[in-house]
Design a protein around this nucleic acid. Structure first.
Length: 592
RNA sequence: GGCGACGUAGCUCAGAUGGUAGAGCAAGCGGCUCAUAAUCGCUGGGUCACAGGUUCGAGUCCUGUCGUCGCCA
């Protein structure tokens, strides 16, 4: 019976391009997971979108003299372009500045309010007498009370790294009008009553969590068992964001963290509308109809508390919706031994490198060295090395040596095999077992182990070739050579499927060289959707005509092959040095 | 400062429930020549951050120290 898998990825903040750490952490793993489950014949819904609200975007807009919407309009399409180029197959990648998302957010807010999980309270906040407005933390700058740094922000000091309350700043200045005529005033806000949710969350975290990653589970457990959850403000004194659905709060908006996680729900509802069945989302979310649905949230480690405490708490407070089944958070990816940092200009932007390199080598290295259990270190040298010695030499070369031999010596067709001997059967049964072994690893979100397992199978096939030596067999016993080559073609035909969730582009090429019709996967496309007053771009995925399956289908003798070409390009070793130079130049530090 | 993790061969990393340290790459030697000089086999190399403790026995459990990361204050 088909399983139902609901997949989410963290909503990328729409004020800059995504780097390879984001891809490795939150977007590539769920894509592998989604592609695999679709091949298995399971029902998959996978949604995410751009997080478009919050002060970082308004600050950015004001600095550039444009509107927040224009900031979103710059980066959101670039996310869509990147996900297409990398083959990240969301069923829907939308954004939060839509009428749908606003409506769902307000509905959740009101429900939390009515059920008593939101309360009103006052906070002390900085108020600028000059332009007569409250200052959200990023709109104020001053001297850090801890280290004396003069340009500390209202939420954090970039010099000593401490988190601050804006009211702690010494001699604060308004970033809106430059005034120093700033006072502390009381402001009324809404708070999510997390203290009230502590107990139910603790009960939830104590059952059926054996499959969670230890770091995620330990962290969450420790937070909940401390019993120290406290109310958290969900509204702010700003103008950009979802309006509060109660009268009298027109000058305030819903805090971005509260609306962003609701995107998981609102995007599922948008997806349902787009499929023509607006109520279909209920079958994926409502406890009485979705008890069999497993929901997975792919995120980076900085996001763990939002997805294992706050969002589950919000769902519980809403009532009747399923809580996360798993939150396979990844750690961080460092580059050349240093933390990725936009402000220090130490980044590898995904869209940028896809100008120079194919997507599959990136998908490969970001999977085989993924930060699943600990921070990892990406180096360009390793990128080139793994591309050349693993992708090109082990897997690509296997496919190429088999295909070109078959194409030249067997008239461009899959040869008719004779009787299989023990060696032939051993190889085929090993690869056949790969569907099970690799599949199990993927299902447990062990993508790294999964791709290593798959690469091991390619090695087995190379070993088989060295034992059989069809280039000798063909001179002495052509039928034996035909059998060996058939066995190898069958092997790479299966490996084509086994590798396909990880390496969809090269698997598709191999699919064609082997003479198969159609595509292994569906089609990604961007569409513009119009609501009553607004419109937005979204990335979609259509797999309605895909016939590929995660199973060892027999390759037909006599099938016409197409002229093969190498699956992967070998990279010159000088590339590693050049790319590091490029990064050092961009960071402005020759030694970093 | 509190909480959660991480620190394993030159490099990048694996090592549920404790039982004489593993892989890939790099280095050396050998086989093959179908293949993008690709492949296959063999060899060398580690006081598992440091100091204690529990145990017949600890990268694997406990305590402390140092270093790194994240969350919170």
């Amino acid at each position: 019976m088909a399983e139902r898998i609901l997949i989410f990825a963290a909503w990328p903040y729409c004020n800059g391009d995504l780097h390879i750490g984001h891809i490795a952490g939150a977007y590539l793993p769920p894509d592998i997971f989604a592609r695999y489950h679709r091949l298995k014949g399971n029902e998959v819904v996978w949604v995410s979108g751009s997080d478009t609200h919050g002060t970082p975007i308004t600050v950015r807009a004001e600095e550039e003299g444009i509107t927040p919407r224009q900031v979103v309009d710059r980066y959101h399409p670039r996310f869509l372009e990147l996900f297409q180029k990398l083959g990240i197959t969301f069923d829907l990648f939308t954004e939060t500045n839509t009428e749908n998302h606003w409506a769902v957010t307000q509905e959740v807010f009101l429900r939390h309010w009515e059920r008593g999980y939101i309360y009103k309270d006052t906070q002390k906040a900085l108020y600028c007498n000059h332009h007569q407005g409250f200052l959200a933390d990023r709109y104020v700058e001053g001297t850090c009370p801890y280290c004396g740094y003069e340009h500390a922000r209202g939420d954090q000091c970039d010099h000593c790294g401490r988190m601050l309350d804006a009211t702690e700043l010494i001699s604060p200045r308004c970033k809106v009008c430059g005034s120093t005529d700033i006072v502390v005033r009381e402001t009324e806000h809404f708070f999510l009553d997390l203290a009230k949710l502590n107990r139910p969350l603790l009960e939830w975290i104590r059952q059926d969590k054996e499959h969670w990653r230890p770091n995620v589970l330990n962290f969450t457990r420790a937070q909940l068992e401390s019993g120290e959850l406290h109310g958290r403000p969900i509204t702010r004194d700003i103008q950009w964001g979802v309006p509060i659905p109660l009268p009298g709060y027109e000058s305030k908006r819903i805090y971005v963290w509260y609306d962003a996680v609701i995107g998981y729900l609102s995007a599922t509802r948008e997806w349902a509308k787009l499929t023509g069945q607006p109520n279909a989302w209920r079958g994926w979310w409502e406890v009485d109809r979705a008890s069999d649905v497993k929901s997975y949230y792919f995120i980076g480690k900085d996001n763990i508390p939002f997805h294992t405490i706050i969002w589950p708490g919000m769902l519980y407070a809403y009532g009747g919706l399923i809580l996360p089944y798993d939150v396979p958070a990844n750690e961080y990816l460092n580059v050349e031994g240093a933390k990725l940092s936009k402000s220090r200009h130490w980044v590898i932007e995904a869209l940028d490198v896809l100008e120079r390199y194919d997507p599959d080598p990136w998908r490969y290295i970001l999977t085989v060295n993924a930060p699943e259990t600990a921070d990892v270190n990406f180096t360009w040298e390793e990128f080139v090395r793994r591309n050349n010695t693993e992708l090109v030499a082990t897997w690509g070369n296997l496919a190429n040596r088999v295909l070109s031999f078959a194409y030249r010596r067997f008239d461009g067709r899959v040869p008719q095999p004779g009787n299989l001997d023990a060696t032939d059967r051993a190889l085929l049964s090993q690869i056949e077992a790969g569907f099970q072994r690799v599949g199990e690893q993927i299902e447990q979100c062990h993508f790294r182990a999964a791709i290593i397992e798959a690469m091991g199978l390619a090695q087995e096939a190379n070993r088989y070739l060295n034992i059989k030596e069809p280039w000798k067999q063909i001179k002495e016993d052509p039928q034996a050579a035909a059998t060996s080559i058939y066995v190898c073609l069958q092997a790479i035909n299966w490996l084509r499927v086994i590798f396909s969730p990880f390496l969809p582009f090269s698997s598709q090429k191999l699919h064609e060289y082997l003479g198969h019709e159609g595509g292994l996967f569906g089609r990604q496309y961007v569409e513009e959707y119009h609501e009553t007053e607004r419109s937005h771009l979204a990335l979609r995925y259509d797999s309605s005509d895909v016939t590929a399956r995660w199973e060892p289908q027999r390759l037909s003798p006599g099938q016409q092959l197409n002229k093969p070409a190498p699956l992967f390009r070998k990279l010159d070793e000088s590339i590693a040095e050049e790319e590091v130079e490029r990064m050092l130049a961009a960071s402005g530090s020759p030694t970093h």
